[in-house]
Design a protein around this nucleic acid. Structure first.
Lengths: 191, 191, 191, 191
DNA sequence: TATGAATGAGTTTTCATTCAT
DNA sequence: TATGAATGAAAACTCATTCAT
């Protein structure tokens, strides 16, 4: 009665890792076959095209992070201030190891795909929106902050940008630095 | 007596545009030939490999932005406060038109290339460092700010991240928002 | 219930012929595709590179000649003297038709590839060694000849050299001549 | 009043070396330009095509060896027996150093070009004929040998074949061996 | 004479996708 | 479901040759 992990899901998981490392376009179907140890027929049985797999990978990223970041943290039952700190801490932790060299799964695909593939773009767009709203809601609760959703977007920009710099430097220092500053920043109060 | 435009430079310019739009890996040599209206032989006469052209493009980005952003603005003879505002305004202006959909030339390549090509990575790294130092120097002059170089890196992260979000949204709103907040932010004073 | 001819083996056979005529380097993959009437994908499905195919062709040459020349003749159960004559006759026969214009499969690749490709070189080297030993063993049995293996190498040199001259002359006369002389030569006796 | 070495001749000399090492087809015009340190214009000023240069190189080989091997040795005023020994010794000496790895200039091109380029083939054919005749004339003088020209061709075959084997083995042993045997061989007497 | 920029057909190789089994 | 053989367009790159200077 155990739920055996479905082959299709396995493929998506493996592909998600490969694509985060190499990018979508540079990842060949063969790369995925090799990493997942499956044949061509199986792959194209589950996914009509490489693009379909790519979208499934984005969906997987979204599932994962919507759960861990949005549901479990920003929409948890903790105090708003604690939720904010937890989000920043979780981000820090996630990128402490070699993960930082691979960059943000969303940021990577955002940069690579936004201009020429609207299917990727709109899904990523929606995820950033969801994140922004969840963070904005949290900020709203903390104190009577001015434009909490704008400030949420600003914080997310800073986080994404510092992961980008961290990837270039191959060091998590830029991310650590930005999050330290964000934690100490004076929030823009209503007048 | 006219200064004829140099062919090699022309190719780099054209390639710089194409690569900013499509990314390095997705840009084929044929794409560049078509955009520049030249033949294969001419291309490979000037560049031994596509990679060599890619590096020349990064160098061109660096030349351009080192001049416009660093030399002409951050290291100009204006007041420090004015230089800071000028940098933010110039960034805003540059991305007002359709440019925002293409993203930041450096940020794009940083994300795409950092993990598997150290030649690209180290050049981009150096550029961000130069920018950070020039901005940090400027901040130092404004008032007795705490850790001006850390704050400079934080500002740059925010700018890069909001260009990334703007690319996803195909709108410059995230960039406008971040810059507005940066302009109004209270700088972290020495204690 | 028929034994279908194996595609990969077919390609090797076709390529072996083309390469014997044109040489390895002058034979393009397209030449082979055209001769075998297959597409690019099929070729590169079986062989990762042209070089891999080249090596497979050498291996095929070796298989063929190890069987016909060494196993079936020099190591057969005939009298040594008969085996020697059979080897010389088989060589003569093989080159009677237009084959002589194409030269020796081994000699051709030996000359073309030895200096810059050790994979080809060492395989050909081993084949000539095997031939030399098998011929030397045969000579040993005939009579108490001095240095049978040296004389075997000498005979093989003569055969290869006269195939070379025959190729230049586009006539088998040099080979016929050399073999006639070899047949009548007084073997160098022990003192 | 010194005869300055003509550029064209220099190019042929340089090309002769490169082609002996790499073969005609694998030698690119650029290889020659690099080795000779000249530009494209100069090359194609002197030679309408690469093929024309190739033929000039064969002519140069023929000039050189007709002089050193045929005129200076086989047609010298020495005793016939001494001329024969001198020819064999000169061959041995020429290939003692690393020269053996490059093979025989004539043998190399004979194998590479005979089947598909009659211009190369017929020149090489003529050279081997001249060598055969000069050697046959020498043999005729030694004693009343049967078929001196056939035996001359046989000797040349042996020499070419053992240079071929030496190239494969990357060792001059096969050539030393063959020449030792040739020196000790009983010449086929008239009956 | 000589330079080297320019050409474009040709080379080897990769790749997403299809298809027979 | 799944295999992997087969496809062919497209990729990066090479090369003999031409041409403006």
């Amino acid at each position: 009665m155990t739920t055996e992990s479905l082959p299709k899901d396995d493929i998506i998981d493996v592909a998600a890792e490969v694509i985060r490392s190499k990018g979508y376009q540079s990842t060949s179907v063969n790369d995925i076959l090799a990493a997942a140890n499956i044949g061509k027929g199986k792959f194209f049985h589950y996914f009509k095209t490489k693009h379909e797999l790519g979208i499934a990978v984005v969906d997987r990223y979204i599932e994962t992070w919507s759960l861990t970041l949005i549901e479990n943290i920003l929409r948890s039952s903790q105090e708003a201030e604690d939720r904010l700190q937890a989000m920043l801490n979780q981000t820090l932790e996630f990128y402490q190891d070699t993960n930082v060299k691979k960059g943000c799964p969303f940021g990577n695909l955002a940069v690579e795909m936004s201009e020429h593939d609207s299917a990727f773009r709109s899904k990523i767009d929606t995820f950033f929106d969801d994140w922004t709203v969840a963070l904005g809601d949290t900020l709203s609760e903390i104190e009577s902050i001015k434009s909490p959703y704008s400030y949420a977007q600003y914080m997310i920009s800073t986080i994404e940008g510092s992961i980008l710099l961290a990837k270039v430097k191959q060091s998590n220092e830029p991310l650590n630095n930005s999050i330290t500053i964000l934690k100490n920043a004076t929030l823009p109060h209503k007048e």
